[in-house]
Design a binder for these strands. Structure first.
Length: 484
RNA sequence: GGCGCCAUGGUCCAUCGGUUAGGACACGUCUCUUUCAAGGACGUAAGACGGGUUCGACUCCCGUUGGCGCUACCA
């Protein structure tokens, strides 16, 4: 049987790391198996819809390279792929179940339900619907319906026995039916709840494997019972572990940077994100961390999914991103970095060939120091501005030292006479000038760096000077010489 | 509280009865070096606890403890 998996987000906000991790597993599994990856939108809660959320979900997935084969925008054989456009399906099966007496209409008001819960909590009893409407007589129902009472449709759970299902990650899991709730499957607005809609759609869309976060495992018995009532074959259940924040609780807004889009903006690379996320809760059982997308697809199996939660480690992600940045060619990296430099006002909207050439030289000098693209402006600034921004430390520690002006003058004079502006010649000249001024090695190099870049740290000094060019270097040295 | 899931260094994972318990991030030291990185070398650091089973348990079973999740007309 051909594998079909779905990623089924609800458009109620920005996708976070955990959502995308699930999508990564879905996509990897589908690709590994030569199966189909479906994107389905679960917009059944009309009160929580967020405008633009759907667009952001699709943009994030595309950015990460997690292209779906069927979905709301591209259609497919089992569409539509948006639940609000599939209401007749839910109505139809709900009615079928009502007719079979497996589910029932419930006319209890939310006020009554609230009071009931309050009392249950006060008495320290398990909360849950007391099934008052489950055994209404036909006359009572007819009367309520005639009065036009609003109702929900509830599933009549078996009152005894256990519901057992097999989860690929955890083995057999059982729940005591007597503790289960007669859950709502159709709300009073006629929309289905998640439990009902996802079961109906997974069946109709021929989903073979349901991958979803571990938070769903406690409601799985509801879904299993629904499959039984409808006489449908269950999919393979797969509940990967949750991703936790550093405080060990389920990832949520309060954990700061959990929005996936934030990582895109900060300049993480898709290949690094996929690599990192794939390794959160899954392992190819090797002592290795860096895998390109192709390897991931090749190695991904459901058996490799871990059964315990993983804490999101932003530090390791950062390291991994640096690894991928280092693998880029200078050309590729320049293209990636350019938007960030433009945004910072350090690069023009369009570059001439010469400017482009210069830019890639800048990029090649900062490549080893870059961990995320957004660090580029800070690292490259002194290559791209006319007026230097001197960091206080550069001023205090070097430029404003009494012996510095003499050293800088000397270096400026010597370097100015250079005909061949090569790294080797520059180094020789700077060092010689230093010796003549009584400052060897670091004693000359540090002041020169501070004067020519305004910084105390940066790429190799002679490469830096070479790229800066003679005119700029001489000007900056002479200017700094007068600053102390 | 009830129910469920889980338990190897600070973090992510490996080891699926016999290993000096391995790799990576982070951290520390050293090296390279003009600095910061990058790279290289080395190091600190782990089987929650208690019972079993077994010739032998990190590994299997039970209990305890702990963590997390669910407990909505949200997903």
């Amino acid at each position: 049987m051909k594998v079909r998996v779905r990623f089924a987000p609800s458009p109620t906000g920005s996708p976070h790391i955990g959502n995308i991790r699930t999508a990564v597993f879905d996509w990897l599994f589908a690709r590994h198996e030569g199966g189909t990856f479906v994107l389905r939108i679960e917009d059944t809660d009309r009160t929580r819809l967020v405008p633009g959320a759907l667009e952001e979900i699709m943009r994030d997935l595309k950015w990460a390279g997690l292209q779906w084969d069927e979905g709301p925008d591209i259609g497919g054989p089992y569409g539509p792929y948006t639940q609000s456009e599939r209401l007749e399906n839910y109505q139809k099966y709900a009615q079928q179940l009502i007719d079979q007496g497996l589910v029932y209409k419930c006319y209890c008001t939310s006020e009554r339900l609230g009071e009931m819960r309050k009392q249950q909590e006060a008495e320290k009893r398990p909360t849950g619907y007391d099934r008052r409407c489950r055994n209404l007589s036909a006359e009572e129902r007819a009367k309520l319906d005639a009065e036009g009472m609003p109702f929900v449709v509830r599933f009549a759970m078996p009152e005894s026995g256990t519901t057992t299902f097999k989860d690929l990650v955890r083995g057999e899991v059982s729940f005591d039916n007597s503790l289960q709730d007669d859950f709502v499957m159709l709300k009073s607005d006629g929309f289905p709840t998640y439990h009902f809609a996802s079961v109906v759609d997974d069946h109709l869309m021929q989903i073979t494997h349901v991958l979803r976060g571990e938070e769903w495992i406690s409601s799985a018995p509801k879904h299993v019972q629904l499959y039984k009532a409808l006489g449908w074959e269950q999919p393979v259940w797969v509940h990967p572990p949750l991703i936790l924040g550093s405080d060990r609780s389920k990832l949520s807004k309060r954990h700061g940077s959990v929005n996936f889009s934030t990582y895109i903006e900060e300049g993480y690379l898709p290949e690094a994100m996929i690599n990192y996320l794939a390794l959160l809760g899954w392992s190819p059982a090797e002592d290795r961390d860096l895998y390109d997308i192709g390897e991931l697809v090749e190695k991904f199996t459901l058996e490799g999914i871990i059964n315990h939660p993983a804490i999101f480690d932003a530090q390791k992600l950062l390291w991994m991103n640096g690894q991928y940045i280092r693998k880029k060619s200078v050309k590729e990296l320049t293209d990636l970095v350019l938007p960030y430099l433009k945004k910072a006002g350090l690069a023009p909207e369009s570059l001439s060939d010469a400017e482009m050439d210069y830019m890639s030289k800048v990029v090649s000098l900062i490549q080893d120091r870059l961990r995320v693209l957004s660090e580029a402006p800070e690292l490259a600034e002194f290559f791209l501005v006319d007026e230097l921004n001197y960091e206080p430390k550069a001023l205090d520690k070097w430029i404003k030292k009494p012996e510095t002006p003499a050293i800088l003058e000397k270096v400026a004079d010597k370097v100015e006479t250079l005909d061949d502006w090569s790294i080797e010649n520059i180094e020789t000249a700077v060092r010689e000038a230093g010796v003549e001024a009584g400052a060897e090695g670091g004693k000359v190099i540090h002041p020169v760096r501070a004067a020519s870049t305004g910084r105390t740290v940066g790429p190799g000094l002679f490469e830096t000077l070479e790229l800066l060019g003679k005119d700029r270097v001489v000007t900056r040295l002479k200017k700094a010489a007068k600053m102390s």
